[in-house]
Computed example of a mutant assay.
Amino acid sequence: MPTSNLTRIQYTQLDTATWCVTAQVSESISHLVTESLWKKSLWLSSYNTSCKDIIKLNSLNWHYQVATAAPRHSVPALARKQRQQQRQGVRQLLQELLKKLEIDDTLDESSFPYRLVNSQHYVCFSHTDANSSKQTTESNQANLTRLHSKIAVVISRQRPAGIDIEINNIAWHVVKRFYSESELAILQELSTDQRERTAKLLWQIKESFIKVNQYTLAQGLGMDYSHLIPSLIENDKEINSTSVPNDSEDANCQSVYRIAALQSQQTVIVF
């Protein structure tokens, strides 16, 4: 069985009721090669190849697989493994955070937003997209050793919180498709570096509010947060806390949410 490993764990307390943790999760994927060779041995046996010949051929093929890059057809398998890794990783990371906070509880995944069974604290997960990083995929094809993902968890005692962790910038054609006219008008006036950084932060804010308010993807990405852009440009602090009205009709939600941008952790939290 593959084993997951959490590294670079970073804990952050955002206020007296909200905590988050980020980490990198990695998993050995060399077993995919073994699985591929096993399937090939079954294929050979169906053509009445002797057991001795199968062992000999697999031995030769093994040396070939180790010495060269992963075959192209393994990429979908790697993506599937990475999604499984992320799902397992965020839940393992949640347990690490609960241990850190000395909370003895379990996760209720029966409905959104997720909550802890006993304390009823709100929980939200985020992880990097398995298909978002071309560089990661190509690296896995070349090395065929480990899969890596960035993962994040937030716990809120008072109300739903959203979290989003992103490694890559958001492509400009994607920005133009989803962002409001007001947001685009401001972004187009910025330098390339400022535009990329600000567009990414806006994306993370939108994703976080989608999780807070249970918006549809199109609805959430289309929300206008242009009024936040000046503070995103001006404030480069490690924790950039900004208040923003919440338009949720849920009577249990307070009217103003705060936004924290953890720059070194590539993470944004709405809480």
Results as ranks from 00 to 15, higher is better:
Met1Ile: 09
Met1Lys: 12
Pro2Asp: 06
Pro2Asn: 11
Ser4Pro: 06
Leu14Trp: 08
Leu14Tyr: 04
Leu14Arg: 02
Trp19Cys: 08
Val21Arg: 02
Thr22Lys: 00
Ser28Tyr: 12
His31Ser: 10
Leu32Pro: 02
Val33Gln: 10
Ser36Asn: 14
Ser36Tyr: 15
Trp38Gln: 14
Lys40Trp: 12
Ser41Tyr: 08
Leu44Lys: 14
Ser46Trp: 07
Asn48Val: 02
Ser50Gly: 07
Asp53His: 15
Leu57Glu: 13
Trp62Arg: 13
Gln65Glu: 12
Ser74Asn: 12
Pro76Gly: 06
Leu78Arg: 15
Lys81Met: 05
Arg83Trp: 07
Gln86Ile: 06
Leu93Cys: 00
Leu97Cys: 10
Lys99Ala: 07
Lys100Asn: 10
Glu102Ser: 03
Asp105Gln: 07
Ser110Thr: 11
Tyr114Gly: 02
Gln120Cys: 09
Cys124Asp: 13
Ser126Thr: 03
Ser126Phe: 08
Thr128Ile: 00
Asp129Ala: 12
Asn131Tyr: 11
Gln135Ser: 07
Val153Thr: 09
Val154Ser: 04
Pro160His: 06
Pro160Tyr: 04
Pro160Ala: 02
Ala161Glu: 02
Asp164Glu: 12
Ile165Val: 14
Glu166Gly: 08
Asn169Cys: 13
Tyr179Phe: 15
Ser180Glu: 03
Ser182Ile: 06
Leu184Trp: 14
Leu184Lys: 05
Arg195Glu: 01
Lys200Asp: 03
Leu201Val: 01
Trp203Tyr: 04
Gln204Leu: 02
Gln204Thr: 02
Lys206Arg: 15
Ser231Arg: 12
Glu238Asp: 07
Asn240Phe: 00
Glu249Phe: 09
Gln254Thr: 11
Ser255Val: 03
Ile259Met: 04
Leu262Asp: 09
Gln265Thr: 12
Phe271Ile: 11
